[in-house]
Design a binder for these strands. Structure first.
Lengths: 241, 241
DNA sequence: TCAAAAAATGACCGATAGTCACAAAATGGG
DNA sequence: CCCATTTTGTGACTATCGGTCATTTTTTGA
């Protein structure tokens, strides 16, 4: 038996292992959609993926690790979509808008992914030194998304569409945090059955997001640009492949 | 034995019951501060409060109910502080600033309360018809806080400090959501030991929050007011006490 | 064909939320 | 002050679920 043959085998095994892992993740995602992350049950995940519990634990160290695996997919996907925005030849301020829209539609289209991302955020405050294969990867992905926001702002400051009196990184952080707040509200609105401000006020999400963008636009635009973005809708420019 | 005497007894009992409940809540809060909400253990809460587990469960239906009890205290306190802001005779846009600052300092000063509030948010998406005595009260409190924001905006539109092209309630919702995003970031920064954008970027929270306010100020101010709030710090105007 | 390695399995364990039969304490009329 | 009744307190116990591991099954490769 040749070395290359051996190599072929181990490669195939690696592929199969990755496929099985992926299947298990999909089972977990489906269950999260059905019953919520808080009701996720490892035995059920195993059953759904048609493997035994022991087998599941051969692919994921723990329940935390499993959810972080989903978060890893999520942040990877989101980052890819955001990076694609940056390839477009548009004014910086418009790129910022599009990044926001991308984030928003990502969350509404993949609530279970956003749920996993919230779980990840939560972990960071709670657990003392958890170790998961996916933690680093998640952080790197998020870092990449954030860097895209910084780039968009820098582009905007270069092309004169964004007020350069702000520090780019600081502004990026503000936009990231505020977008997160908006997106969280959208998520909650979509996934909550109980009391909820939006319905009560008769406000629709789309209009809300448009006005958020308008406010941001006014807040960060240069004097020359003010008013340009007042009545445009950026809600449509979502990153649907 | 007179009726009034009987009444006196039952009132005293009610007071004592409320005191004990409060003691249990305090025990839980302390444990959350020490070990995080996710490591909160009912037996430990009982021990800390110097009662038995069974007794604890006479005062709170479930662990969820206990945490919602903390959330109830939290939202009550926050609402009180925000309402106090509104009693001041200031331009509307400044009231908006102060509400934001109040929220921010509330969270940094009472991380365990904010944690309980996040738990409450989480419940709404997860659980199918949980029943807790505190759920309604929490919602009412949050509603009150939100109403304060609407009031501040209406005041600002009246006195000409806030651009009245927005719908007041919609703008309030935007400010609420974005503030929540900023405050969440501050919370995470303060309570996370791991990887964290802020330290890495060498940005300090105070400056970040000031610039958030500046951006908001630009975004919602009337033309006449633009530039007035550019370099002011609203971070200090927190509702201590 | 068969022995060694890898993967799969599910009975089992420990932790913890929640319960309940019983005990202690408080109440109030005589 | 005593005793019956109601209220409150207690901790052993149960059920559930995350995680483990000895054993079985499958795959590998000579």
């Amino acid at each position: 038996m040749t070395d290359s043959h051996k190599m072929g085998i181990s490669e195939r095994k690696e592929r199969e292992k990755e496929q099985k892992r992926s299947l298990m993740l999909e089972a977990a995602e489906a269950l999260i959609l059905e019953k919520g992350l808080d009701n996720l049950n490892m035995t059920e995940v195993a059953d759904r993926a048609e493997v035994s519990k022991g087998s599941l634990y051969q692919y994921f160290e723990s329940k935390t690790d499993l959810v972080l695996g989903i978060c890893n997919k999520a942040t990877g996907l989101l980052t890819k979509e955001i990076q694609k925005v940056l390839t477009q030849d548009k004014p910086g301020i418009e790129l910022v808008h599009m990044i926001g829209s991308t984030f928003m539609s990502f969350v509404t289209q993949h609530p279970e992914y956003f749920r996993a991302m919230k779980f990840h955020d939560n972990l960071k405050e709670t657990s003392d030194l958890e170790d998961s294969t996916f933690l680093d990867s998640c952080s790197t992905n998020m870092q990449s998304s954030f860097t895209c926001m910084v780039r968009a702002i820098q582009i905007g400051m270069q092309d004169g569409s964004i007020n350069s009196s702000y520090d780019p990184k600081e502004l990026a952080l503000i936009l990231w945090a505020t977008s997160h707040g908006m997106v969280s509200m959208a998520y909650q609105h979509q996934n909550t059955q109980h009391f909820n401000l939006l319905n009560e006020l008769g406000i629709n999400l789309k209009s809300l997001f448009e006005n958020f963008m308008k406010m941001i636009g006014c807040g960060i635009a240069t004097e020359a640009q003010k008013g340009n973005y007042d009545s445009q809708s950026f809600f449509e420019t979502n990153g649907t492949n």
